[in-house]
C-alpha cells in the first residue's frame, strides 16, 4: 500500500503527532512553575528575606495560634551566596586559564585527554562531588563547613567554565592573535589584553550558566555544608543554603508551609540567571 493518498495521510499524521507531543512536553514546566507560584507567593514578604529560619517550636506555636509562621530564609540566602561566591573565586580563574590552555594547544594529546576528562567531570553526579569535598575538606578540617560546600560547587562549575572559555576562544579569528604578536606584544598580554577581552561575552555567559547550575544544588551540600539555623559568615563553619532549607522544611511537618516560598525564591533565582545568560548570549551573538 503506497497510494499517494495514504502517503499524504501518514505525512500529516506524523506532523500532527510531532506538534502534539512537543506541546505536551511544555506542560510539566507550566505545572511545576504554576504549583510553586500558587503555593509560595503568599509567604514572600520582607521578613522572608531578612529573618532566619524559625525553630520547629516557634513554628508550632504560630500554627497553634493560627498565625503565619515567623521568620524567613536569610540564613539560607547568605549561605548560598557565600558558597557560590567562594566557589566562583576558585573555579573562574582556574577554569578560564584551563580553557585558554585548551584553545591555545588544540591538537596535543594532553589537551585531548584534559578535554575528555572535563566532559566526564561535567557528567559526574553532584552527589559524588559531595563525597569528594567531604573527603578532601570536611575530614581534614574535622568538621562540616561552607568551604567544603564551595569546593564541591567549584568542581561542578569548572567543566562548564573550561568548555565555554575554550569554545569562545576557538571562535576568535586567528588574525587577532597574529596581529597582536606582530606588533611585538608579549604572548601574555596578547592573551590577556586582546584575546580574553574579545572572548569576554562567551566566558561571562559560561560563568553565569555555571552559577545557575550550582545555585540550586542540594545533594553535595548535604554532605558538606550541613546547614545552620543562624546567619554564618565564617566559611570554616557549617552554613545553610536555600536548597538545604527546602530539604529541612520538607522533613519538618511544622515548617512545611515555608517549602513553597523557599522553592519559589530558588526557582526564580535560577531561572532568571538562566534566561539572563541566554539573552546575553543571543545579544552578543556567541
Amino acid at each position: 500500500m503506497s497510494s499517494l493518498k495514504y502517503r499524504l495521510f501518514k505525512n500529516k499524521l506524523l506532523t500532527l503527532s510531532v506538534v502534539i507531543f512537543s506541546a505536551l512536553t511544555a506542560v510539566p514546566l507550566v505545572l511545576i512553575i504554576g504549583k510553586v507560584f500558587l503555593k509560595g507567593w503568599r509567604q514572600i514578604n520582607w521578613d522572608f528575606f531578612t529573618k532566619t529560619t524559625p525553630t520547629t517550636l516557634d513554628a508550632l506555636l504560630a500554627i497553634n495560634n493560627n498565625q503565619p509562621i515567623p521568620g524567613g530564609i536569610a540564613n539560607g540566602i547568605v549561605g548560598t551566596l557565600m558558597m557560590v561566591l567562594v566557589a566562583s573565586v576558585i573555579a573562574i580563574p582556574l577554569g578560564v586559564m584551563c580553557g585558554i590552555y585548551l584553545s591555545e594547544n588544540r591538537k596535543t594529546k594532553f589537551s585531548t585527554v584534559v578535554r575528555f576528562l572535563t566532559d566526564l567531570l561535567q557528567g559526574t553526579p553532584s552527589i559524588i562531588l559531595g563525597i569528594i569535598a567531604y573527603l578532601w575538606v570536611v575530614i581534614p578540617l574535622k568538621g562540616y563547613s561552607a568551604l567544603a560546600g564551595s569546593v564541591a560547587l567549584a568542581i561542578m562549575m569548572l567543566p562548564l567554565i573550561v568548555r565555554s572559555t575554550e569554545e569562545t576562544m576557538n571562535l576568535l579569528p586567528a588574525s587577532l592573535k597574529e596581529a597582536g604578536l606582530a606588533l611585538g606584544s608579549p604572548y601574555r598580554s596578547v592573551v590577556l589584553k586582546v584575546l580574553l577581552p574579545s572572548a569576554f561575552g562567551g566566558v561571562f555567559t559560561g560563568i553565569l550558566l555555571a552559577v545557575s547550575r550550582v545555585i540550586g544544588e542540594t545533594a553535595p551540600l548535604m554532605l558538606t555544608a550541613l546547614g545552620a539555623t543562624t546567619i554564618q559568615w565564617d566559611i570554616t563553619k557549617p552554613a545553610s543554603a536555600v536548597s538545604l532549607l527546602i530539604w529541612e522544611f520538607y522533613n519538618d511537618p511544622n515548617l512545611q508551609s515555608m517549602i513553597w516560598s523557599a522553592s519559589l525564591f530558588l526557582l526564580l533565582l535560577v531561572l532568571s540567571l538562566n534566561i539572563l545568560a541566554k539573552q546575553l548570549a543571543k545579544k552578543w551573538r556567541i
Partner: peptide
C-alpha cells in the same frame, strides 16, 4: 520558544522537581 521552554526544564533545581513529584 519551544526550545527555550524545554531548556528551562533543565534549569529547575532537582529539589524542586522532588517537591513537585511529592506533592503533585
Amino acid at each position: 520558544v519551544l526550545g527555550g521552554i524545554v531548556d528551562l526544564l533543565a534549569g529547575i533545581p532537582s529539589i524542586v522537581y522532588g517537591l513537585w513529584g511529592f506533592y503533585a
